[in-house]
Computed example of a mutant assay.
Amino acid sequence: MFTGIIEELGKIDKIEVNQGNKDFTIQAQFTNELKIDQSVAHNGVCLTVVDISEDKYKVTAIEETLNKTSLNQLNVGDLVNLERGMKMNAHLDGHIVQGHVDQTAICESIETKNGSWVFTFSYDPKLMNVTIEKGSITVNGVSLTVVNSKPNAFSVAIIPFTYEHTNFRHLKEGDTVNLEFDVIGKYVKRLMDLNA
């Protein structure tokens, strides 16, 4: 379980194809604090540490994960948002994030707003995921508040700290991002659908 509060940006050092899977070697400052079999969220995708060497560690994304997330579009040198699993005695500063991506979205526009930025994303409504105004959404692993909620799109306002300390500053119009919708909202929607 995660909170959506990004700890640092990791750099993709190497990508190896292994049958239908990809092994990603990530360079990160907190590598010396990791252990084998630990969960780390990469752009919001929970992956397991399988190897550690100096300031780099390796994770494997299976074919299912590659097909349902934007990880398949990563290249060597790309920066990824990293978060280690939540400590149960720590503050929950973001919201409950599972690290299970529901679907991807496309960055439709980026608007500068006198010291902040508004990013608008569109997603396929056929998967029946929903956002609500002022509700929580996870974009590339970052816990954010929804503004301008629509059936297939939403916007988020990004403060300077988030812009500087995540890969939001590298996003461009047309880029694909990972979305995890609010887990509580998903359960409520499921119960309503069952009772409809």
Rank of each mutant, 00 (worst) to 15 (best):
I110F: 01
T162F: 11
N178A: 12
P151G: 10
S116L: 05
E83W: 06
I5R: 02
E8T: 10
R169N: 13
G99I: 02
G141A: 03
H91F: 14
G99Y: 03
V177A: 01
M88H: 05
V49P: 01
H165T: 15
Q73I: 03
A90T: 12
S70L: 00
E173Y: 00
S143D: 09
N18I: 15
Y57E: 03
T131D: 06
D37N: 13
D55N: 15
L79Q: 13
D182N: 14
E108Y: 04
T112R: 08
T162M: 11
Q38S: 07
V118W: 02
I6C: 07
I5N: 02
V146S: 03
M128G: 10
K189N: 11
K126N: 14
G185M: 12
N81D: 08
K35A: 09
N18G: 08
R84Q: 09
E8N: 10
N72R: 12
L191P: 02
L47C: 07
K68D: 10
Y163C: 03
I158K: 01
N167D: 10
Q38T: 00
H170N: 11
I158Y: 02
V147Q: 07
N67C: 13
L179Q: 03
I106A: 06
T3E: 06
H42V: 12
V147M: 08
E7P: 00
M192V: 08
S116C: 10
Q38P: 00
P125C: 10
G99P: 03
Y163D: 07
V59C: 03
N178T: 12
M192C: 04
L66I: 11
D37Y: 03
I15Y: 00
K113S: 05
R84P: 00
F2M: 06
N32W: 00
T131A: 12
I158D: 00
L34M: 05
P160L: 10
T31K: 08
N140V: 04
M86G: 01
G85D: 09
T131M: 10
D124S: 14
A61W: 02
S70E: 06
L79G: 00
